[in-house]
């Protein structure tokens, strides 16, 4: 085990192979291969999106235009409003996007555990009636612990429906392992986790033994070589592409993966193959 950790942290030369992903990205061309972004937060098209900072656009149509430019085929939408103050209003916005763009948008319903009855109704309505194919939880913004009792029905729902749960938490690998074991039919996508891996190598070593857990790389503290370091320990099947745009930038993370020191086949897995079946695509 110690040897694995040492190799994992040892600096290595960056070879930068030029494959289809890198070749497209270096020119700013849309990626020609199938790409899924598992992490996106649209706002309304009114031009007033960022609740704590400004960015240009951010509405559904704007995010689709960015996808056209980058070549991202499908994005998993959970509304910015939903992970903030009003999850019902936010889920309704995403329902509209799913109806209007069924081939480009996968809806992820957001339950706020501080409103447990409403949260349950929302999951049933959005998933059973409106075709959402995932759940997004934000225990940080909603200030509710992931192991709190009001999240249990959410995990049970995901387990019953075999749904992916995109989770913005920085809980311990032990907590993730416990959830993955308790809800084996759910698929946990640990957001921002590949950046966290640099600080906590236990995460990758935990994830590699959990077939129903994936990690994505959206975040600010992305350090050079961290995706490569993560997959060397966790295995390529554990990584999926997620950008958190427009809160962050889709192109930023796209470049991170496209130019990573990985093979074309490995990038293909991160960009789509690892998660495509989970999303029913």
């Amino acid at each position: 085990m110690f040897g694995t950790l040492w190799r994992h942290h040892a600096p290595h030369a960056h070879r930068h192979p030029r494959d289809v992903f890198a070749a497209n990205a270096i020119e700013g061309d849309p990626i020609e291969e199938f790409v899924i972004d598992v992490h996106s937060h649209p706002g309304p098209d009114s031009g007033h999106q960022g609740f704590n900072h400004h960015y240009l656009g951010g509405g559904v149509d704007d995010l689709l235009r960015v996808m056209d430019r980058t070549g991202v085929d499908v994005s998993c939408f959970s509304a910015h409003t939903a992970i903030g103050p009003d999850f019902v209003r936010g889920n309704a916005l995403v329902a509209g996007a799913v109806r209007a763009h069924p081939a480009r948008v996968v809806g992820f319903a957001v339950p706020n555990p501080n409103y447990p009855e409403l949260a349950k109704e929302e999951l049933i309505r959005r998933v059973d009636d409106q075709g959402f194919r995932g759940i997004k939880i934000h225990s940080t913004n909603h200030a509710y612990p992931i192991h709190g009792p009001n999240y249990a029905p959410v995990f049970e729902f995901a387990d019953d429906h075999r749904l992916p749960i995109l989770s913005h938490t920085f809980d311990s690998p032990a907590r993730l392992k416990e959830l993955a074991a308790r809800y084996p039919n759910a698929r946990f996508i640990w957001a921002h986790a590949i950046g966290a891996h640099v600080r906590d190598p236990d995460l990758a070593m935990t994830v590699r033994d959990l077939p129903n857990v994936f990690c994505e790389m959206a975040g600010s503290g992305n350090r050079r070589g961290q995706i490569e370091a993560f997959v060397r320990v966790a295995g390529i099947e554990s990584a999926v592409f997620g950008s958190d745009y427009p809160v962050l930038s889709q192109t930023w993370q796209l470049g991170n993966v496209a130019h990573a020191d990985l093979s074309e086949a490995e990038k293909r897995k991160i960009f789509s193959q690892n998660i495509r079946g989970v999303l029913g695509l």
């Binding site: 192109t251 993370q253 470049g255 991170n256």
Partner: peptide, 11 residues
């Protein structure tokens, strides 16, 4: 990683 700011500008 250089790929990140590069993609910001390229796209």
């Amino acid at each position: 990683a250089l790929g990140q700011p590069h993609a910001e500008l390229a796209y």
